[in-house]
Design a protein around this nucleic acid. Structure first.
Length: 516
RNA sequence: GGCCCGUUCGUCUAGGGGUUAGGACAGCAGAUUUUCAUUCUGUAAACAGGGGUUCGAUUCCCCUACGGGCUACCA
């Protein structure tokens, strides 16, 4: 068992954009596979034709690519020895296994219609019970355990719609050994007769994932905790199919919870609290409804992945910043916390900030170039678009933002002269001698041969002294004159970057516009 | 309702029969700074409750409470 090659899968259904919780599940699968030199594959569980959403599969693939969680086998990733990896394309495979279960007496045909089931459920609800299709009720329902063999055969021969259900035994204890939770015991009396094959001939998740996991030689099934209640049915299916020895080890992951209040994290929470719940932007093809993605919000995929990894897992050390390679070697199921994790959008930003701090200024500058050009309408040969200028701008801006995309807006004064000036600062700091100070400063700038940050510092202080002003009294005014704003990047660094001519021009502009 | 899983600072979590219960985010205070940040320092903040077991429980067991999940011909 232990010498088998580790094979895990991520098996989402294409019913919409991939939720960040799903990405985390994929990530844990990936980390576990890589840690043990195993395989990680992507299987698309599209057995519900009614819930299929166009574009969802592509979205899943693109999301995994963006995150750097690359399957080495599966839909969108070159398939592999077990193709196809899309369950709808494997449809003919499943019926034989359902029939095998019927033949061995572990499953049966059921002819109850959806309407009949609905009525039963309503009635039970009215009596404050829950209807369950199980070992206690199946005898009174329309299925091959209750009907005669002739009638069953007749109905099938007539082409009557039917499903195949698992025949769950009474009075058995079903134990599953979960990698995260240890031994969990269920009583079979409380397990319902799950539908294995639907009336449209498609398998349900229960049958399909088992057949595929078996055929695809999956060794570990890592999935969300919402699957734990149906795990005993899965154990039974493996057992009755004769595959119990090949059954993968199950690991049920804790869920991602809402930041406030209770319940699992949903799309609504993102809208309500203003953070993305999905890796990429998504627009619902039928409603046109849009959902924000981490990528478009400006998150680095590495930061997103790092953040996700720490939601329910920890390395057991105090290190928090991990590359995906480091995550691979540090990962283990023992360090997965059992309780659900409330998602904290603030911490997510913090992770991005950490990656931003360590990002290369040159690379950020290169990425920002076209945005800056467009935003400020700057021609290609302008010095403000030079690598050097942009890089210096990034150096100044980097410590004050959490996302590199904030930089152009936050540092707009590095790319264009202000058109208005912070009135509060002007009123408070502008004195009768201010005008003469700036005239003198412009003069001093003009005659200076070099213009480094420390040159600016010296020139400002010298001018202040000759004008009989304390440097502290004009520093913020100087900032407003140059940028229009009372706060911002390092002042002398900014002046130096803007350059002598631009500074002089901005002083003259300010002198014209500020009336005091 | 039933079944299953869970419960350490506000949040993510470490730890584990004897600890000053550790870290991070957020908060607060201070230092630095021309501003806003960054950075640094400091600070406040937790073992849900009750029973056991034990010389000793936050740690092990049970109960309760609370939270979560499931209870479809959805996954």
């Amino acid at each position: 068992m232990n010498d088998k090659k580790i094979r895990v899968r991520f098996a989402p259904s294409p019913t919409g954009p991939l939720h960040m919780g799903g990405v985390r599940t994929a990530l844990y699968n990936y980390l576990f596979a890589k840690k043990h030199g195993g395989d990680f594959l992507l299987r698309i569980e599209d057995t519900d034709q009614g819930r299929f959403v166009p574009g969802a599969e592509e979205y899943i693939i693109e999301s995994l690519k963006w995150c750097g969680i690359q399957p080495n086998e599966g839909v969108g990733f070159g398939d592999g020895p077990h193709a196809p990896y899309r369950q709808s394309e494997r449809k003919p495979l499943y019926r034989q296994y359902a029939e095998q279960l019927i033949n061995s007496g572990h499953a049966y045909y059921a002819f109850d219609t959806a309407e009949e089931m609905e009525a039963l459920r309503k009635q039970a609800e009215a009596e404050k019970r829950t209807f369950s299709y199980d070992s206690f009720t199946r005898g009174q329902l329309k299925n091959s355990t209750a009907l005669s063999a002739e009638e069953t055969a007749q109905r099938i021969a007539n082409g009557e719609a039917h499903v195949i259900r698992l025949k769950v035994p009474q009075k058995e204890e079903i134990q599953i050994n979960d990698l995260i939770r240890g031994e969990v015991v269920f009583h079979s009396d409380l397990v319902d007769d799950k539908v294995l094959l639907k009336s449209d001939g498609m398998p349900t998740y229960h049958l399909a994932h088992i057949v595929d996991d078996y055929l695809m030689k999956i060794t570990h099934a890592v999935r969300g905790e919402e699957w734990l209640p149906s795990a005993p049915a899965h154990v039974l299916i493996y057992r009755y199919l004769g595959w119990e020895n090949e059954m993968p080890q199950y690991a049920h992951l804790p869920l991602l919870l809402k930041p406030d209040g209770n319940g699992k994290l949903s799309k609504r929470d993102g809208d309500r609290l203003g953070f993305p719940v999905f890796p990429l932007d998504w627009q619902d093809p039928s409603t046109g409804e849009k959902s924000a993605g981490y990528r478009e919000r400006g998150y680095y995929p590495q930061a997103f992945v790092n953040m996700l990894a720490f939601l329910g897992w920890n390395p057991g050390t105090e290190q928090e910043i991990f590359s995906i390679e480091e995550l691979c070697s540090a990962f283990s199921f023992e360090h997965i916390h059992k309780a659900g994790a409330k998602f904290d959008p603030e911490k997510a930003k913090w992770f991005n900030e950490q990656y931003l701090r360590h990002a290369s200024e040159q690379e950020i500058a290169a990425r920002l170039k076209s945005v800056v050009a467009n935003t400020f309408n700057i021609g290609a040969d302008d010095r403000r678009l030079s690598e050097n200028y942009l890089t210096q701008a990034v150096v100044l801006l980097k410590p004050r933002v959490q996302f590199e995309a904030e930089m152009p807006e936050k540092g707009n004064y590095l790319f264009m002269a202000p058109d208005q000036y912070d009135q509060q600062v002007i009123e408070k700091k502008w004195k009768e001698n201010s005008r003469s100070f700036f005239v003198a400063l412009a003069n001093a700038f003009s005659t200076s041969s070099t213009f480094t940050a420390s040159d600016v510092d010296t020139l400002v202080k010298e001018t202040a002294t000759t004008q009989n002003i304390k440097p502290g009294d004009i520093m913020q005014l100087f900032r407003v004159v140059l940028s229009g704003q009372g706060g911002g990047v390092d002042l002398t660094g900014m002046a130096s970057l803007l350059g002598k001519e631009e500074c002089v021009a901005r002083i003259e502009l300010a002198l014209k516009k500020i009336q005091n």
